[in-house]
Design a protein around this nucleic acid. Structure first.
Lengths: 128, 128
DNA sequence: CCTTGACCTTCCAGTGACTGGAGACCTTAT
DNA sequence: ATAAGGTCTCCAGTCACTGGAAGGTCAAGG
């Protein structure tokens, strides 16, 4: 399998796949012409990475998760802890965004949005 | 006012203030020794920037907002539109994070978290 | 006057996770 | 033979800072 076909199959940009090789997440073989050759295991790893990234795990977390996946003697507690820490970060981020959302929603509602210059949004930004 | 005092007063890192000058958001004066000298208007702008950034506006949005703030003939509609677009991005981001949160919460609950290797989190990542 | 320590200056490099583009090579179809 | 499209490597840019090095300045204490 060439990189383009893999990209279509896994639905991941070619550039990203090359990047993942660069940083050592995958190690596809090479054809005599220098083209990357992807085995089933490579595609499996890429799919794994795609799903972990879609859940917001960082690349370093993904690296750890893959290592745990390949380690038959892992403790599920290690995976769970990683996931829980990540979950907490997500929850913190949600809370932060919701606070912004609340303030912004209020300000947007208070603003007439016509062609007069008077604007509560700017007023708030200017004076806290 | 020197940069360090401003940093304390506005509660913004010295580095960030210098960066904001670099990209042309503020233009403090200079003393004979080369030190930056901040006037009230500079600090006012920095406070404005701090609040806009805290609401998640990008630097470019902040630039636009400051320009609108200084333009006495602005239409509040322009400010409102910018804020609404930003609000929508925040809401999209919240939705995306909540979807991650839902999946992760489920997976974390399903995982025993003991020292056996069996782990639903890894299973999900491996097979979608 | 000298030193010490806390400021201040500029400039360069790194962060995370890609993304875009240049220039060159390879393959496939016409 | 040629053209289109796929692949290669390498370099630079994104965003909004952040860290660090190397050096100039200032105020206080001895």
């Amino acid at each position: 399998m060439n990189i383009g076909d893999v990209a279509k199959r896994i639905d991941m940009p070619v550039k990203t796949i090359r990047y993942y090789e660069d940083i050592g997440l995958i190690s596809p073989l090479r054809d005599t012409n220098g083209y990357r050759v992807f085995r089933e295991t490579d595609m499996h790893k890429l799919a794994f990475l795609g799903r972990a990234r879609a859940l917001g795990f960082s690349i370093e977390d993904c690296r750890t998760l893959m290592a745990l996946y390949e380690d038959e003697t892992r403790a599920s507690a290690d995976v769970k802890q990683l996931a829980q820490e990540h979950l907490k970060q997500i929850e913190d981020k949600i809370a932060q965004l919701q606070s912004m959302q609340a303030t912004l929603t209020e300000l947007v509602h208070a603003c007439a949005g016509d062609n007069r210059p008077d604007c509560p949004i700017l007023k708030d930004l200017a004076s806290g």
